[in-house]
Design a binder for these strands. Sequence first.
RNA 1: GCCCCCAUCGUCUAGUGGCCUAGGAUAUCUGGUUCUCAGCCAGAGGACAGGGGUUCGACUCCCCUUGGGGGUACCA
Length: 548
Amino acid sequence: MPDLITRFAPSPTGYLHVGGARTALFNWLLARHHGGGFLLRIEDTDRLRSTEEACTQLLEDLRWLGLRWDNPQLVYQSRRRATYDAIIAGLISRGLAYEAYESTEELDALRRQAESQKRSFLYRRRTLTPVDIDKLRAEGRTPVVRFVMPVEEQRFADAVLGKEIVMPADEAQDFVIRKADGMPTYHFAVVVDDAEMGTTHILRGQEHLKNTFYHIALQEALGYARPTYGHLPIIMNVDGSKMSKRDRDKKIRRTAQEWLKKSGAKVDAIESTASLPPGQVTEWLADDARQLDFADQSAVMRVIGMRESELPEILVHDFRRNGYLPETLLNFLALLGWSPGGNLERMSVEEMTQRFDVSGIGKGNAKFARDKLLAFNTEACAAAPIDRLVTAMRDFLSVNPDSPLTRADDAQLACLLQMKKGFRTLREVEETTRFFFIPDEQINYDPDAVEKVLKRNDGHGLAALRDLGDILAQVSPWEHAALEAAVKQYCEQKQLGLGKVAQPIRVAIAGSTISPPIFESLEFLGKQRTLQRIDRCLVNTHAQGKIP
RNA sequence: GCCCCCAUCGUCUAGUGGCCUAGGAUAUCUGGUUCUCAGCCAGAGGACAGGGGUUCGACUCCCCUUGGGGGUACCA
C-alpha cells in the first residue's frame, strides 16, 4: 500500500465540469508526484440527481483527460448502505448520535427566527422522553439521525491555505448523518469511505472548508486517522459569476427564444424538426428550472442554427467537442491556481507531475479566461507530431459525428492538418476544410464573398476565374508546384497580384474566402472536382445576372 | 443577517523585508511577413485596492476599511 493516497469523489450529475476536472487533476498530480495512489469514488447518495448515464459520461471525461484511477472496482456510495447503517447504529448505542424528528418546515422556521435575531441557527440536541417519541412517530414522522457535535473548539491545518482554520465551540451544532430516506449524508459517507479507502490527502473545493470541522469530529468519534486537508480556490467565469453547468442550457434557451421571435416559427416546429417528443421543448422553455440533456440540446441547436462555438465552454466535454487537446486543457487547468514558480508555464503532464507541490497552489479564486487556453492549444498543436494530431482529430470526429470529415482516411486527415498548420483548434480545421468532403453541388456560396471577390470591380474576379478554368485544365501533373507555376505565369501575363487570382478560385472551390493555402487545396480537391466547381460557380454567378 | 476564506497588469500568475524604477504568459495596440483565415517576427502601453502601524527599509509582517468569494440543507 502506498503511503500517500488521494481520491476524486464526484457526484454523477453529467459530464465533468472544468472545476471538477481541476480538483481531480490536483489530486492526481499529488498522488503521481509522490508515487502514491489515486482512487475514484462515486458519491451518489442524492438519489434524485444521480444517474447511471451521468456516471458513464463522467468516467469518459476522466479517461479522455488521461487521469487514470488506481482502483479497478469503483466505490459507489449508494451500494454501501449496510456499512453506513452499522456504523451509525454503533454511534447511537454509544450516545454519539440520535434520532431527530423536526420537519423541514419546522427547521426553516427556526432558522428564520434566528436570522431575525441576527444570529445563526444552530441545532442542538433536545431531550425527548419515550412518550414524546411515540407521539412523534404516531404523527407519521420519519426521523433523521444527527451526530452529537462536541461543544468544543475544532481546528485543523489547511495545506493549501497554509494556516490553521478554527471553529469556536459556540458554533458547534448537531448535523444530520442519515437522511429520512435512509441514505447517509455526504458528511457521513465521505468520512467513512475516506477512512476505509485509506485516503491520506484530500484536495477539494473551498466550498467544503467549513464542512471539514464536521468531518474531523466524526473521525475522532470513530477512531479514524485524520487526512491532510487542502481547500482549493474556486474557478469563476470571466465576469465574476459562478461557472455553472447551467450556463450552457441558459444560452441555448435565450437563443431559442430569440429565434422563435425572429422566425415567427412555433415551438412545436422545433420539436418536430428535432424529432423530440411533443411538449418537451415547450415545457423546457416555459420553466427556467428545467434543463435539456446533452443530446436534446444538440438537436435543438441544429434546428435553430446555433453553432457549438457559440456555447460557453463549461464542461470538459465542451472542450473536447471544440477541438482542444486534453494535455493542453490539463496544462491550462493546472495553472489556474497553481504555479511551479518562476516563469515556467508550458508543461507536459510529466513535467507537471515532477514539479507539483501543494505549497505552490494559490489561495485566491481564479477567473477562467479562454483566450489563454486558445493560445496554449495553438502552440501545443504546432508542436505536436502529426500522428498525435491525427489521433486527436479522430477523437474530435468521434464526438462530432455529423462532420463530413468522418469520411476522410488518416492520410487525408494528416494532409489537412499539415495544410492548416498554425490552426488554433481542431474545430477550426474542421470548419475550414469540410468543403473538400461535401458534394460539389452542395457547396454554398457566401453572398458577401461572391460580391466582393467575383462581382466587384466590373467582374474582374469572374473574368479571371473564367481564364483560370481553361488554364488549370491544361496543368499536368495535378500537383501544387505545377499549379502554382501555371497560375503565377497567368498573373504575370495579366499584371495581377496573386491575391486577385487566388481569391476567386478560393470562392469557387470553397464557397468562401477562407480555405487552406490555395495550391495545396487544389491538389487535394483533385482536377476534376476543381474544374467542376469552377464551372458551377461561373454558371451560378451568371445566373444571378450583372455579368460584364 | 451570521460565520469563514481571499486580494500584484483586463486575465492567469512570479515575488516569502532590501535583488522590484515589480518579471513572465495571455489579451490589447502599432509595425512587418503572407494567396484568404490562422500563424509567425519586432515593438508599445498596462498592476502591488485604500488607510494606518511595525521596521533603517515594505508588494512582502500586523490592524482597520473596501472589494471579491464561500458557507449558512434530510445537495454534494
